[in-house]
């Protein structure tokens, strides 16, 4: 295989990707357009935090954030967030290096513990952020997860 052919193929696959993305955007059944969930379509950490309304977030040790240091399989990475911050309203989980950074945003009504455990995909070695919104402002905790086998694409 020569390099020119490879480049052409790569370009072709990019074009197909864009076309599919456009199609997906226009698909009437897909009720979740970008406008409705800006935090989930942002492509950088800064944009994601901004869309979440968490731009000035401060690091906090009052957030217990459990994630493995090394994930052998990035497709299934267990994460657990337990906020000790008073007046916790929501917890968002962000995987910085993922094509889709924003994993989940949980809202806790009165009577529900500010605790959640789930599993996320981590495409490559990346920082994971738990962003906690409280009555007294926005805080976060960071964990680095090293991935030996990717979780996205295939």
């Amino acid at each position: 295989m020569n390099h020119e052919r490879r480049t052409v193929l790569r370009q072709l696959s990019k074009v197909t990707g864009y076309a599919l993305a456009l199609l997906a955007g226009a698909w009437p059944r897909l009720g979740w357009s970008a406008e409705q969930r800006p935090a989930f379509t942002a492509e950088t950490l800064e944009e994601t935090l901004k869309a979440l309304g968490a731009s000035g977030s401060k690091e906090s040790s009052e957030i217990e954030f459990k994630a493995p240091e090394i994930a052998e399989n990035g497709a299934v990475v267990p994460v657990e967030v337990d906020s000790k911050l008073p007046g916790t309203r929501s917890i968002a989980i962000i995987v910085e290096k993922n094509p889709h950074l924003m994993s989940a945003d949980f809202t806790f009504p009165e009577g529900t513990d500010p605790y959640v455990a789930t599993r996320v995909k981590v495409a490559e070695t990346s920082n994971l952020l738990a962003v906690v919104k409280t009555d007294a402002g926005v805080f976060h905790a960071t964990r680095l997860v090293k991935v030996t086998l990717g979780g996205c694409g295939g």
Binding site: R37, F40, A75, V76, V77, V95, N98, H100, L101, M102, S103, A104, D105, F106, T107, F108, P109, G111, T112, V116, T118, R119, V120, K121, V122, G151, C152
Partner: peptide
């Protein structure tokens, strides 16, 4: 009574 609500993206396993 709603006890939990969540928005998810594609990177939940």
């Amino acid at each position: 009574r709603t006890v939990l609500s969540a928005l998810w993206g594609a990177s939940v396993a």
